[in-house]
Design a binder for these strands. Structure first.
Lengths: 338, 338
DNA sequence: CTGAAAGCGCTTACAG
DNA sequence: CTGAAAGCGCTTACAG
């Protein structure tokens, strides 16, 4: 494997001239010399060492994609299809810009700081929310630009990309109301611990209030985890004397679980219960009936996060921006007019 | 940010003594000195620079996870839930061993070689199959240990982890035969271009032959892509005069598409058509009826790939091993006895 | 057990 | 336009 020295020797120039052609300092090397050097580099498949370069420049062109580990699980969040999709898009966008992406699961902030330092990481994007305390600490301690997805703190200087979650909850609930539903339930993993979920919940409440309705606490299900949680909710709904006519779930998988669970205990969807999900992910098109859901644009989220990060890397003053992405309702077959 | 020099100065020892404590060369530093140095390192949150270390050692503890880009799409394969799951597990396992993981999409081998060189990558794992020609070239040109998932070439020295795809196709078909089915169709993306799919197809044929049956070419669907492809297959089946009584799909999503498509044109599953999928991924539990499918153990695949890679990194003679992982049939509700 | 020197593959001022 | 020297933060022989 040849080094800059070998190339310089063979070209009969100094190491620094080779360095100048690598770095396209056209003003510092004559066209003839450049051509000769480039030919020799090509001939030897010479690739400059990023490790040597970053030792000097304190910059590596590595972006860390941060994946929280918590929530009673040491498993990588990459297993979540949404996370995979988001990281996939981010990787594509960063590759186009000639950045390298390092994927880092972490529980504690110190792990991130260590990696950041040891590799001279140029920037970071946190995918999936962590515990608020951890995220806050990370924002405060990070020494490189950092973009947080799906979480924002008003009192902190930070870069974030979020969804208009309130609008999502509102849109879905309003749609159900317009379809004539008045008995509308809500199922979510953690209404009060997660800001994202809480915003959707507030949207739900606000829509109800607009129709002078109040929530029925029997129909608000907290701690609903994925499909299994949805199925459990369905069983509880089935056994109720007074059932809701519609359910809003904060995740497609939960909505699918509700549908499946209801079908198993003999309710039919949407005749006996209308259901709306959130995200417009793959399951929404798989389930029968196809799921009406609040759609988010994952590619736009990735693009926004990457653009913000690039901006922050080139401009040290760009350290505080909160981008809110729009959501929209996709109507399919899981809701019936009443 | 402190360097080894700062630590050495504050401890009143030489840089090399600090280096020895970092590297746990206990024989080369007295316990008292070590303790003092460690305290100073902790106090300053000192983290040794991997970039400086790898410049010397020619090793970086970075493992590249390679994601092919092809198939008429420049999209990152990470968007595929199976890929996300596999990479998630790999990342978990490598993190435990204190390796860093870099995710690299690539079209051409030269891109991989460049990254390999520029970062002194220690090893690589290719997830998802690429075109055979590209994979062969990669195997031959790679200068670091490389594990290929889901592809093997008998004529090459290589490390690979595959599934017993033939057995998978055979098991599923045999099960259908045992349930009394004789008219069994097959749906796959690319029967002859993909070795994995072809092996499943051969398993299907072999099971048929055991029952002295032949395939009916009307019922073998090639070019079936994901759910949409499955739905298209369903429409064609629905319009047939003589329909198969059962379908085997090489992917859960295809099987789900077949189920959904059939339901839409009025066939009921499994009464009118039995369906078996492959992978036991999330969709198999989402669809109604729940899908009978050939299960693979994605965690075992990740673990095997990582173990092989670790072995190869520590032993230069370990360069040729082909591990075949077992598959099993998970029976649910999408097949009925005839 | 401890240290001084050389060097990994580059880039950054500084001269010419 | 071109080069010689110093240095990035470490480790590796080599001495003592």
């Amino acid at each position: 494997m040849s080094t800059i020295k070998d190339i310089a020797a063979e070209a009969g120039v100094s190491v620094m001239t080779v360095s100048n052609v690598i770095n396209n300092n056209h003003s510092r090397v004559s066209p003839g010399t450049e051509k000769r050097v480039r030919e020799i580099m090509a001939k030897h498949n010479y690739v400059p060492s990023m490790v040597a370069r970053s030792l000097i420049s304190k910059s590596s062109r590595i972006i860390a994609v941060l994946l929280p580990i918590w929530y009673a699980s040491s498993a990588s969040m990459l297993r979540d299809p949404y996370a995979g999709q988001l990281v996939g898009h981010i990787e594509e966008l960063l590759r186009e810009k000639e950045y390298y992406v390092m994927v880092c699961s972490f529980e504690q902030v110190s792990q991130v700081l260590k990696i950041q330092q040891t590799w001279h990481i140029d920037g970071m994007i946190q995918i999936m929310p962590h515990e608020d305390a951890v995220t806050r600490e990370l924002i405060q301690q990070s020494r490189t630009p950092l973009v947080i997805c799906d979480r924002h703190f008003d009192d902190l200087q930070m870069l974030s990309v979020c969804l208009d979650d309130h609008k999502g909850g509102y849109l879905a609930t309003k749609y159900l109301l317009e379809q004539g539903h008045r008995d509308i339930g809500f199922a979510a993993p953690a209404v009060f611990e997660s800001a994202v979920i809480h915003a959707r919940y507030m949207g739900y409440l606000d829509a109800l209030h607009e129709y002078a309705l109040k929530e029925n606490s029997d129909w608000v299900f907290n701690g609903t985890i994925h499909q299994e949680g949805g199925e459990e909710v369905a069983r509880r709904i089935c056994s109720m004397q007074k059932r809701p006519t519609a359910m809003l779930a904060t995740e497609d998988l939960i909505a699918c679980g509700i549908i499946k669970g209801c079908q198993e205990c003999g309710l039919s969807i949407p005749q006996d219960l209308s259901v709306i999900g959130f995200d417009d992910s793959m399951p929404s098109r798989l389930i029968t009936p196809a799921l009406t859901t609040v759609a988010q644009d994952v590619h736009a989220k990735a693009k926004t996060a990457v653009d913000m990060l690039m901006h922050a890397i080139s401009d040290p003053d760009f350290r505080n921006q909160h981008t809110v992405l729009d959501v929209s309702l996709v109507t399919r077959q899981s809701v019936r007019p009443l």
